[in-house]
Amino acid sequence: MAEIKIEKKKPMWLLIVLLLIIGGLIYYIYCTDHETHTESSTEIENTTAQ
């Protein structure tokens, strides 16, 4: 008889979890970057001479 080699499939859930984590980190960095710019740009100094 001939031997039939059976290869186990690599788990796809591991790849999906890694992609979700990387996507979440990119989204978090993108959102926090824009929030810091909007807060600093809304500050207005009162420079009127009295």
Rank of each mutant, 00 (worst) to 15 (best):
39 E>S: 04
36 T>I: 09
46 N>Q: 11
23 G>I: 00
25 L>F: 13
47 T>L: 03
42 T>W: 12
35 E>R: 08
1 M>S: 11
18 L>G: 05
17 V>S: 07
38 T>M: 10
9 K>T: 13
31 C>A: 15
20 L>P: 00
18 L>Y: 04
2 A>Q: 15
16 I>P: 01
11 P>A: 11
4 I>H: 12
29 I>M: 07
48 T>K: 06
13 W>L: 05
19 L>G: 03
28 Y>A: 13
24 G>K: 01
16 I>C: 02
34 H>R: 14
9 K>C: 10
11 P>W: 11
45 E>A: 03
17 V>I: 14
4 I>Y: 14
26 I>C: 00
50 Q>A: 12
3 E>H: 06
47 T>A: 02
17 V>D: 01
20 L>K: 01
43 E>G: 05
2 A>D: 14
48 T>V: 11
46 N>C: 03
32 T>G: 11
32 T>S: 13
13 W>Q: 06
48 T>C: 00
41 S>Y: 03
19 L>M: 04
8 K>E: 08
17 V>N: 02
38 T>I: 14
20 L>F: 02
13 W>R: 05
22 I>F: 08
47 T>F: 01
36 T>M: 02
38 T>Y: 06
42 T>H: 11
43 E>N: 02
49 A>C: 02
28 Y>M: 09
24 G>R: 03
38 T>E: 13
47 T>I: 04
22 I>M: 10
17 V>R: 02
15 L>V: 15
47 T>V: 04
50 Q>T: 11
47 T>G: 03
45 E>P: 02
25 L>R: 00
50 Q>W: 09
34 H>L: 14
16 I>V: 10
10 K>F: 09
44 I>Q: 03
6 I>E: 07
11 P>F: 06
16 I>D: 05
32 T>C: 07
15 L>I: 15
12 M>A: 14
9 K>V: 07
15 L>N: 14
38 T>V: 12
2 A>L: 12
34 H>P: 06
43 E>D: 08
